[in-house]
Design a protein around this nucleic acid. Structure first.
Length: 278
DNA sequence: ATCGTCGCCTGAAGGC
DNA sequence: TGCCTTCAGGCGACGA
């Protein structure tokens, strides 16, 4: 994606009615044509492509979406959006690159905002996002305050993007294991020590996952074709029935918010509010 | 206001 | 072998 800044959009095409969220498809495509990429940002699970002049393209990859650059569209299935770029200037070899959104399960979404001031109106969920987990905004005071009136399980609250932005099901389970907190614990009943552990655990788990190229579903890969391999190293996620990597107790699976939740019933007990030093 | 459940969508995996 | 069912999940909609 570092190739993008400076590149100009020749034409944008959408192939799936579900993919586009705002505005209508035709207006979306017309609005992108002629735009030049300026910079790329991220908020939570949203990618923000800033264009010269103030427009921005917002992309949420859902669970199976990925962005691909400079591949022949005819070789790809499940292409939901194709952004054709104009030929690169100064006689470089690349003739007509494209940026593709490929997404088998169609959970991905794209938006176009006409100006920075209209970003939240175009993407309301962006305005409701909570703090970034790797920033200083995620601290004990903030979380204790957020948890104070929450009767929900800590697992459910971790998945709530308005509290912490960007934690998905895998990393919620992994973080709770590292923090040695039972996923069904009511958020408001967490001690300040546990909250501190949880913050450290979230940071550790996310940092390590980023180092390793993220997690990926089976054969899904990043833009350069590299598979995420975090999942192979998971402490508890996807390991129900298998022995805990620490104590050999079988990992249990329960359902929270219609999501699989994996934990070690021995390691993750209320009495053990101590961070694992992984 | 808060909380839990359902539906969207497709391919992989497991059962028979 | 091949069909059928189940499962996976980000997130918005919906109902209690």
């Amino acid at each position: 994606l570092s190739y993008l800044p400076g590149r100009k959009i020749e034409q944008a095409q959408l192939y799936s009615g579900h993919t586009i969220k705002h505005p209508a498809a035709q207006k979306f495509c017309l609005g992108l044509a002629g735009c030049t990429f300026e910079s790329i940002d991220r908020r939570g699970k949203y990618l923000l492509f800033q264009m010269v002049g103030g427009k921005s393209l917002i992309v949420h990859l859902g669970m199976s979406g990925r962005l691909l650059f400079n591949e022949s569209v005819s070789e790809l299935s499940h292409v939901r959006m194709n952004i054709a770029l104009t030929a690169e200037a100064k006689g470089k070899r690349t003739a007509s690159n494209s940026l593709y959104l490929q997404d088998p399960r169609r959970f991905s979404r794209v938006w176009l905002a006409d100006a920075p001031a209209k970003l939240f109106a175009a993407v309301p969920s962006l305005s409701r996002l909570g703090v970034e987990p790797l920033s200083k905004d995620l601290n004990q005071e903030y979380l204790l305050n957020q948890f104070s009136n929450r009767k929900q399980s800590i697992k459910a609250v971790l998945l709530d993007q308005t509290v912490i932005a960007g934690i998905g099901n895998i990393y919620a389970d992994e973080s709770l294991f590292v923090a040695r907190i039972h996923p069904l614990t009511s958020a408001q009943r967490l001690t300040s020590v546990q909250v501190k552990c949880l913050i450290d655990a979230v940071r550790k788990v996310l940092s390590r996952a980023i180092e390793r190229g993220g997690s990926s579903l089976r054969n899904y890969s990043d833009i350069s074709g590299v598979n995420g391999n975090y999942q192979h190293r998971a402490w508890v996620y996807g390991r129900s029935g298998k022995p805990c990597r620490v104590c050999k107790t079988p990992i249990q699976r329960v359902v929270v918010m219609a999501r699989s939740t994996h934990f070690c019933p021995h390691c993750q007990q209320a009495s053990k509010s101590k961070l694992y030093g992984f």
